[in-house]
Design a protein around this nucleic acid. Sequence first.
DNA 1: TAGATTGTTAATCGATTAACAATC
DNA 2: TAGATTGTTAATCGATTAACAATC
Lengths: 210, 210
Amino acid sequence: MTEKAVPDIVVGRLPVYLRILNYLIDEGRYITSSQELGDRLGISSAQIRKDLSHFGEFGKQGTGYDVMFLRDQLQKILHVDRRWSVVLVGAGDLGHALAHYRRFNDAGFDVVGVFDSDPQKIGQQFGKYMIQDVSTMGEVIQEHKVKMGIIAVPPAAATEVAKEMIKLGVVSILNYAPVTIMVPLGVRVQYIDPVVHLQHMAYYHNEEAL
Amino acid sequence: MTEKAVPDIVVGRLPVYLRILNYLIDEGRYITSSQELGDRLGISSAQIRKDLSHFGEFGKQGTGYDVMFLRDQLQKILHVDRRWSVVLVGAGDLGHALAHYRRFNDAGFDVVGVFDSDPQKIGQQFGKYMIQDVSTMGEVIQEHKVKMGIIAVPPAAATEVAKEMIKLGVVSILNYAPVTIMVPLGVRVQYIDPVVHLQHMAYYHNEEAL
DNA sequence: TAGATTGTTAATCGATTAACAATC
DNA sequence: TAGATTGTTAATCGATTAACAATC
């Protein structure tokens, strides 16, 4: 009964495959191959076939993959063949950009509330959102059955915000604060820290490169 | 002469170690251990010791690591014991947030110019930056010896912007556009796509969780 | 000295790649 | 049929972990 779990690293590549498939559809393409997908992603065709094989058989020997069919299948696998409600905490510059990020909507993620703890900000209009007191987040989460949250607060506040989200039923957190968050089993956190990426790349710059 | 290269995945963890060390310093700590670092990061102490061992010996048996010393060493290893100039292309909401992101400055990354190709935006003030025509990016890059660039433009424009940056001498690109960029050897790209992270986490939500 | 923790080795674990039979 | 490409197996490659001698 317990099928062996798909490696998380494989799951993490599916959204990228999905992204390419959407571009191929935009380009009016109907058929593609693991070779083409790999070329456009800079990975091997074998890896793509292996990754997909964890979930079933989606192609035809000699032909390749039906772009739309594979797209639909990946959407189902990722559970993004529906819309998700998301709460956003942190109404700074970053929060502002995230609240208005079109691609969230395009991809089926709806920001249903923007929250902050700063009395100066609460009540202010934030584009189409009104900034709400983070202490009232529970109502919004309940109303929209929110399972996902985005944290865009200063590092010192992030842990507390995460704890509150989790208490209110959020199980997936996208964390922009530069701190590691400890979460109970069953809760997932993904991190985005641009500084980490810049520092990572700085490593490869030679001394003389100044 | 050719020492075996340090695995990229190890390099990618160093900035996170550095981040924790800075927090420990803020907390007034002088000594730490691989155990403590691992606990705070949710990884094993063995991994931390192994990672560091690629670069030298930084600790004392029985004692642990001198926090400041290790911080300084990691900064040197990552080449972030200096300041880096960075160009930013894309003056939308995201570009706005990035241009004003304090942590870039705190970490030693200076945005020395913000560019766009939209005539409506060029010449406008963007906080302390004036949005410049992307076609004049070369002068700024030369003047500041820029080696790093951040792309925050729509997907359709990203490849072209990257090509231009690379032509002008940029070798490290932080790409927020949801497209894979093919680059010549010696050039690095790091990707940030929040939608990928949300979709990745959506996978773990069960059907009944709606 | 006794206790603690490093740096390193060897074992384990997991991911990627190459190759090819199956088959469209 | 001939050509192409999948899905899968086995081999390779690489990363993580466990364990411990060294030593502060």
